[in-house]
């Protein structure tokens, strides 16, 4: 670094370029040439036309400004959101949408967590489900029709496979339909661990509610119900997206079930074909084993029993 360079602008600029490029080459260009930067999970599929249209809307509305899509391998993060993110999940993500800020929750494992109806209701009016949320309403998405020609151009640009039928079906779909379809595919290439087998999952509990008729537990259960359950089962538990919890049916069959079945379903969640005491569920219920303690869940059951038939 002799003094000469400071009165020779071209030599100075060339030196600066080389100095700038060293870190660039080592941390950015070189990794690009290695297979570890291009992994792909075996069961990862390209987006369908409807899913890609949904992803485009996710981009357009700037969802990435408030929602991340990457679960870090930290204990509480895996508890809250699910399996931590794998490099091979994102091979078709152009660009990546990991985000940098969680004003809202991470969405890396949102696919399949709730039924479609939950998302429609939530996008329409988030405050209807979570009165204190700061998420803006996206009701207008249900009014915009998709343009199949535009989606086709996007599919072509990305070289994703599609069929003519798939495209023509888009004509009757809205931005909202597309965004929900995208929500439901995010993070699904990583196999969900079966709820019952998961750590903390409970199988065949057979004992009565230890907190039954306990007034304190009922009061606590009421509060927990409002925070965790009311958005799907309604404020009075008479059902909305999810079924009524105070009628005489369970898993769409007549005849209620004992407390411990309520506990199991709440604790484990359900997926399609989930069987509880010989009855088959449709799935769609998230499990609460990670966010609620056992006492919490028993309290909710005690609360539900206390309002039953009222």
């Amino acid at each position: 670094m002799g003094s000469g360079i400071y009165n020779k602008p071209i030599a100075f600029a060339l030196t600066a370029t080389v100095v700038i490029l060293i870190g660039t080459v080592v941390t950015m260009f070189y990794p690009m040439l290695t297979p570890e930067m291009h992994p792909k999970l075996e069961n990862l599929k390209p987006f369908t036309a409807l899913q890609l249209a949904g992803r485009d809307i996710y981009q357009r509305e700037g969802c990435v400004n408030c929602h991340t899509q990457t679960v870090r391998p930290l204990k509480t993060e895996v508890l809250r959101y699910g399996e931590y993110s794998k490099a091979g999940e994102f091979a078709y993500d152009r660009p990546f949408l990991w985000g940098s800020k969680r004003t809202g929750p991470d969405l890396a494992r949102i696919g399949g967590k709730y039924p479609d109806a939950w998302h429609y209701k939530h996008f329409e009016k988030p405050q209807g489900m979570f009165p204190q949320t700061n998420m803006p309403a996206y009701a207008f998405l249900a009014k915009n029709k998709l343009d199949p020609a535009e989606v086709e151009a996007h599919m072509k640009a990305l070289d994703f496979p599609y069929t003519i039928e798939e495209l023509s079906a888009l004509g009757s779909k809205t931005d909202m339909d597309a965004l929900v379809a995208y929500m439901q595919v995010i993070g699904t290439a990583v196999k969900k661990t079966a709820p019952v087998a998961a750590a903390g999952g409970v199988k065949e509990v057979h004992f009565p509610n230890p907190l039954a008729d306990n007034p304190q537990a009922i009061a606590k259960g009421k509060d927990l119900y409002a925070k965790n359950c009311a958005s799907c089962h309604g404020d009075n538990a008479k059902g909305d997206i999810g079924p009524s919890l105070v009628d005489d049916e369970f898993f769409y069959e007549k005849g209620d079930m004992p407390d411990d079945d309520y506990f199991e379903v709440t604790n484990n969640g359900t997926s399609e074909g989930y069987v509880e005491d010989g009855r088959t569920g449709k799935g769609g219920m998230p499990g609460f084993k990670d966010s609620l303690s056992k006492d919490d869940i028993w309290s909710i059951v005690a609360y539900l029993r206390s309002i039953k038939g009222k």
């Binding site: 941390t27 950015m28 990794p31 690009m32 930067m37 291009h38 992994p39 485009d56 490099a87 999940e89 994102f90 091979a91 078709y92 993500d93 152009r94 660009p95 990546f96 990991w98 996007h154 640009a157 990305l158």
Partner: peptide, 15 residues
């Protein structure tokens, strides 16, 4: 409309 030339992990690293 355009899509990042780089995908997934690589897209994240370039960005």
């Amino acid at each position: 409309k355009s899509y990042h030339l780089f995908a997934g992990v690589n897209s994240a690293n370039v960005e």
